[in-house]
Each structure stands twice: as C-alpha cells, then as structure tokens.
Computed example of a mutant assay.
Amino acid sequence: MKTDESLFSQRKFVWVCATFCCLLWGSAYPAIKNGYEIFQISTDNLPDKIIFAGYRFVIAGGFLLLFAFWQGKSIARLSRHQYLQLIVLGITQTALQYTFFYIGLAFTTGVKGAIMNATGTFFSVLLAHFIYKNDRLSINKIVGCVLGFIGVMVVNFNSQSMDFGFSWLGDGFVVLAAFILSASSLYGKRISQTIDPTIMTGWQLALGGVVLTLGGYWSGGTLVFHGWQSIANMGYLALLSSVAFALWSLLLKYNRVGMVAPFNFLVPVSGAVLSAIFLQESIAEWRYAMALALVCLGIWWVNVVRNEKRKDLRKDNVVL
C-alpha cells in the first residue's frame, strides 16, 4: 500500500497516468462510432445504444474483478455497507451518468455535447473546494480550467453547427451527466479509502453495466454480435474502460481532485484527433494544434506549485 501511495502521488507519474487515461477515453469515440456500424445500431436507436454500453461495462467490470482475483485479492469479502456503497456508485457513476449522456446527445449536436460535457471538470474542482480543506480553489486552478475549456471549444468549433440556444432535454441532460460523474467520482474517492480501487471499480462498472443492459432490454432494445469484428470492438471498449477507470480511481485516491480533474479536458481533444485519424478525416487543421496547446497549458497552470509546502496526500482533510 505504501508503495502504491508513493508511486501514485509522484507528480510526473500522475501526469503520465492521467494523460494515458484520457487518451484511452478519447480512443473510445472512434471505437464507439465503429461499434455502432458493426452492430448495426442506427443513430436514433437509444435502447440499443444503452445495451451496447451495458455490455461494455459488464465485461469491463468482469475483467477487473478477474484481475483482482488473480492477484489473490478477495473480491467478495465486503461488508453489507460496502456493497450498498458499490451499488450506489455503480448506479450513479455508470448507469445514470451514461443514460443522461446518451439522451442528451440525442437532442443536441455532437459539438455542443462535447463542450457541455467538459463542464464536468469545473464541477469536480468546485465540489472538491467545498469537501476537502487541502483542495481549495485558487487563481491557478481557475485560470487553468478556463484555458482547458477554451481548448475544448476550439477543437469543437464549427460555425455551421454552433448556435446559442439551450435545450434542457439535450444540453441540460449532458451537463447533468457531467455533474453526476463529478459528484460520483468524489464519492468513489472516499470509498477507495476502505475498498481496493481495482475491486471497487470492477464492481462499480459491472453493477452499473447490468442496470444499463436491463434498462435497454426493458425499453425494447436488442444487441446482435456480427462475427469477430463485433467481438474485437466490444473487447477493446471493455478493456479501455477497465484500465482507464481503475487507474483514474488510483490517482484520485492518492491525490487532490484539483490536480487530477483538469486532465479531463484532454478527452474531447484526443477524441477529436483520434477520430480524425481512424475515421479517415482530415487532421491538418489549426484548431487541433491550438486546442491541444490550450489544454496542456491549462493542465500545467493548474499544477504549478508556487511557494507551497508539499502536503501529505495520504489522507484528505474533509470539510463536510
């Protein structure tokens, strides 16, 4: 445990791991788009999309629980209270968050959806300010978050698809999904202090995936595998989810939220770039380079340490 704490609280290692997580999540964009084509899911078929997401997270959770079991960890020796915590986390962080996100995307444009979803970083930094004494808002965090958000807007800028209208069912649901993810991530940070992060993430993904799958079938959806391509696509999506979520949980366990959360701005940028590469779209555009520069500058700005003593990050000072 001390080895994990020492490793996952080293600043450069945190940066590398957080960037890797965001690259994995970014790669999900083209993988999901290809998945819809492979599984023959139409754009407006929400129940099938929810089942698709449910299968992905059930398998991802299974991967993590099998990995923890292989390591000799007891994946089921938990108290009743801990099981209840995991159920709440699974329902909120996976099931509710993705349900609101998919519904929101169905009633707004992809450009506005990506920008609205980026508000989750602001929620994380703001909530941490009120919950943890050692994670207060600062000028650096505010400036860094604003730079990152501008970067997300730049990479998604499209004069033809941008408008200033606000749809509660579309934009509002995407923002609500971002808030749910931020709040549940902080809840997961607390749970990870008493439950191994790998086991916690495994159960959270699996339980949330089951809820999504049942909800999708209850809504009249179906999912049919079409050969090895569908298996490979689902396997990759499940693997990236299991690795990224588990690693992110470890980073949150041993570090301040305000240090890790701004890396989330990399997700839409990397998603746009990777989508352009793998979907044979042009990437020779100024907006990609500018967006990446702004996001990286924002992350650096948030993590600048000015005349601060390094604090013991093993335990957070909780206000509430």
Rank of each mutant, 00 (worst) to 15 (best):
E285M: 10
K2P: 07
N303T: 07
F123A: 14
K189L: 08
V155Q: 08
L223H: 07
R190L: 13
G104W: 13
V269T: 13
A183I: 11
W301Y: 00
S219V: 04
S275W: 01
R56T: 14
S282N: 15
L207W: 03
F225C: 04
V143W: 04
V143E: 00
S42V: 01
Q229Y: 07
S182R: 09
M116V: 11
I50P: 08
R256H: 09
V111H: 14
A114T: 12
G72D: 02
W286C: 05
G151R: 03
P268S: 09
T94W: 07
S9I: 10
M116I: 08
F164S: 12
S242D: 06
N303L: 04
I131C: 03
F179H: 00
G188E: 10
S42N: 06
R136Y: 04
L84S: 14
N117L: 12
G26K: 01
S42L: 03
I231C: 01
L78E: 04
Q229T: 10
D316E: 11
I299K: 02
G221V: 02
N45I: 01
A238V: 10
V305G: 00
V175H: 11
I150C: 05
S124E: 09
A244C: 07
N255M: 04
S138V: 00
L320P: 08
E285N: 08
Y55V: 12
F179C: 13
I32N: 11
F123I: 10
I87V: 15
I32V: 15
Q40T: 05
Y36T: 06
L137C: 05
